[in-house]
Design a protein around this nucleic acid. Sequence first.
DNA 1: TTTATACATAGGAATGTATCTATATATTAA
DNA 2: TTAATATATAGATACATTCCTATGTATAAA
Lengths: 100, 100
Amino acid sequence: MAYDLNKFFKAISDPNRVKIMELLKDKELNVSEICQHFDMQQPSVSHHLSVLKNADIVAHTKRGKEVYYRLDSICITSCCNGFQEQFVEIEKLGKAGKAQ
Amino acid sequence: MAYDLNKFFKAISDPNRVKIMELLKDKELNVSEICQHFDMQQPSVSHHLSVLKNADIVAHTKRGKEVYYRLDSICITSCCNGFQEQFVEIEKLGKAGKAQ
DNA sequence: TTTATACATAGGAATGTATCTATATATTAA
DNA sequence: TTAATATATAGATACATTCCTATGTATAAA
């Protein structure tokens, strides 16, 4: 799978989308469930989900009337690692800790 | 150092800024030298450098009339790794290869 | 088949961003 | 001190993004 790094980073450059990703960290949620955690209207949440989907950060499955979204962690690690490798020598990678 | 992840990802969401980062990969360059690689005018390059500087992605040193910019690879690895760790279990990290 | 529910899409207003030209500031050379 | 060079800042314009309301589409329930 060839991820579009620019699309990926644009997608994660919005705090509301990052919050959606956090909600989906270890569970699937449908759109209504995601909406409950925001002040935004449902169409705005749908828009953010489509940006995440378009960047391959989330996948979705329709079950009945509901559409369930889940995180694609391969995309996240692949894009983050791939970007680092463009700029930092391999032997230096993985040494820097989490941003505090 | 507490990096601002949102600021970091917004900064790297622009192709021209990523290209500047590539130019600075293993050498310092001053603004005029960076400008030679772009069609943009010098003030636009200066603007992009200030966005990168503001996100702690580059540092700069003035020598005489010139201002030399260099990449801060610690910022890059710290932000990329820190972001991954928000969403992916530690034991799964570093397994996914470079985006092709 | 009609109605209700879940979600997506369309279109518009407000705001943010990238680029340009013009100009200010700092440093060096004459 | 005056002129030239390197870079940054200011202001304007074009375009992109976010959010809203209104509405379309698919599925399930009555």
